[in-house]
Nucleic acid binder design. Sequence first.
DNA 1: GCACATAGTGTCGAAAAGGATACTGTCCGC
DNA 2: GCGGACAGTATCCTTTTCGACACTATGTGC
Lengths: 124, 124
Amino acid sequence: MAKARHSRFDCTPGCSVEAAIGLIDGKWKSIILWHLLSGTLRFNELRRHVQNCTPRMLTNQLREMEENGLITRKVYAQVPPKVEYSLSELGRSMEPILRTLKEWGDANIGLYGKPTGHDPREAA
Amino acid sequence: MAKARHSRFDCTPGCSVEAAIGLIDGKWKSIILWHLLSGTLRFNELRRHVQNCTPRMLTNQLREMEENGLITRKVYAQVPPKVEYSLSELGRSMEPILRTLKEWGDANIGLYGKPTGHDPREAA
DNA sequence: GCACATAGTGTCGAAAAGGATACTGTCCGC
DNA sequence: GCGGACAGTATCCTTTTCGACACTATGTGC
């Protein structure tokens, strides 16, 4: 997901769709982004919010999003380390995407019977 | 991606975002969905549209989306097989998502310097 | 009889993503 | 001096994803 997964920007129309997805895809990114919409958060605050995400994964996702310019990492040279994560302008520009996604999810998942989640192959 | 990857619907707010992403995530799904927005397509038509997607992968993605209720598969009992894929109502309801995603992608990727694609770790 | 088209399936293997667990260093409170 | 909080790292391992390639069956055209 990190690297070349969605890096075919030369593909058929729809590639920008893919490219956009590529940036928010990754098990925790959307949640992280979602929380950051409400404001700046520190590493361990995020950890608590995301709960079952290991620190390794959290760092990982955060770093990728930083590289992609979605978030900003601000380190305070303090004795007990302090690092703040916030959305960059680009990250904030994704708000409509996140919202559209959430609206659709709220409207269609559960109401519809959880498109994912149920998976016939498990029941059968 | 297929199964339990994004199946934490009980998580913190933002889970519906994740759930929605889970349905369009998967290397080819967004492209397929995108093409189907313009109308019904047959298997090999899709193949030609998506180009570098192996038939195995195509079947795979198509099946997952069918299970998720996003697309409809219509088989014609003909001698040279004929199978048509089209968006279901649920699938069509994703149009705003796809469009938002595409708009964002068009506006921010390339213009911004291809957030993915460049990856400092490769150059460094 | 051979190739082509249709719509796939099956097997194999590599790579990536993700998870578990333990560890770093520094300061504070006790 | 012990343990906690801070912000991560390092290492190992499993699962998932994806791609290559060959292969199925049936009918048509040559």
